[in-house]
Design a protein around this nucleic acid. Structure first.
Ligand code: SF4
Ligand code: SF4
Lengths: 161, 161
DNA sequence: TCTATCATGGACATCAAAGGTCTATAATGA
DNA sequence: TCATTATAGACCTTTGATGTCCATGATAGA
């Protein structure tokens, strides 16, 4: 139960892109250099981010990557879901066990009445709630917010000089 | 980024224990039967729960498991942390990259002034916040709350007969 | 005391996913 | 045309989850 390194790399790469957006097209070489990871692997990740419309890429001379939308439109949740996938945080197995009969079965009697979403057991409901709680938080933080903080510190440091 | 099946099994097992606590000592055979999983594997999980003081176990004839404390003292977070471990949801690698210099380094200048906890970068801070958010929610739900809901449904079903 | 019952721990085996490398291909500007 | 750059796929290694099996030890009851 941990975020993958790929997610780590993706977040760092996006921050880098957001920071050097003045011009555009940051090459994989510069990107990999700044993060200290291999170009090979990072390109895989960038490719994924492109397919999901987080970044744009142009091939050829002077090509590279840039953010596909402004940094404050890219949430942590966006990035994480692209890399980690969109499966549920918890998916229950053994829905045919006696346990399940006891905790969740009830919907089987009236299959037409309202969707059976309401009839899941509490275990599932709690785990689903946890997921929503997490997602809500991650939706509230963007790449831009990281940049803002970094910039604030930077100027603060300059002031002290 | 998903909870393991072991966590699934552990939660279900604890609900079962909480439900048949009237007497005590539920054997691994009954437990595995109710959940529909192998005794071999489940016993591994139960052993872990015992080592962390969630359940008690007695060997020998008529032995088995029982909850080590009342069901409302066992939170979802307790269970998850026993099974999934207690590592951080996010641990950043490459703290020697240029990225890191830009985002987080600042503490190096005054290593004696206040602990450097406050000096982590925003990426880390956001991810840590997400973890706390998740944990807070999971702390608020216990095995007992699942039992309560199941019991409520049960009586409601009886009423309708 | 003997025995059937029960949990425990360790040694495996299996398998899927993460993490990572390499290369051929296609696009593009100079 | 040519050097540059991203892309997609094949491939490899390592790690962790999942699962089985067995030898050991504890215990209650006969
Ligand atoms: S979590 Fe609830 S719904 Fe899912 S298998 Fe277990 S009892 Fe059934
Ligand atoms: S997340 Fe922040 S503190 Fe961690 S390595 Fe990246 S820049 Fe440094």
């Amino acid at each position: 139960m941990q975020f993958s390194k790929s997610t780590d790399y993706a977040l760092h790469a996006l921050v880098h892109l957001g920071n050097s957006e003045r011009c555009n097209n940051v090459g994989i070489k510069e990107l990999a250099g700044a993060l200290g990871v291999s170009e090979s692997y990072l390109s895989k990740i960038m490719s994924k981010l492109r397919q999901d419309g987080i970044v744009r890429a142009v091939t050829g001379v002077n090509g590279g990557y840039e953010l596909a939308r402004s940094a404050d439109q890219i949430t942590f949740l966006d990035v994480i879901q692209v890399i980690e996938g969109r499966q549920q945080l918890y998916e229950c197995s053994n829905t045919s066990s006696r346990q399940h009969q006891f905790l969740a079965e009830e919907a089987a009697v009236q299959p037409d009445q309202k969707r059976l979403n309401e009839n899941v057991c509490l275990i599932e409901k709690v785990m689903y709630g946890a997921e929503q709680q997490l997602y809500q938080y991650l939706r509230g933080h963007t790449i831009q917010s990281v940049l803002d903080e970094a910039f604030k510190r930077w100027t603060h440091k300059e002031d002290k000089k």
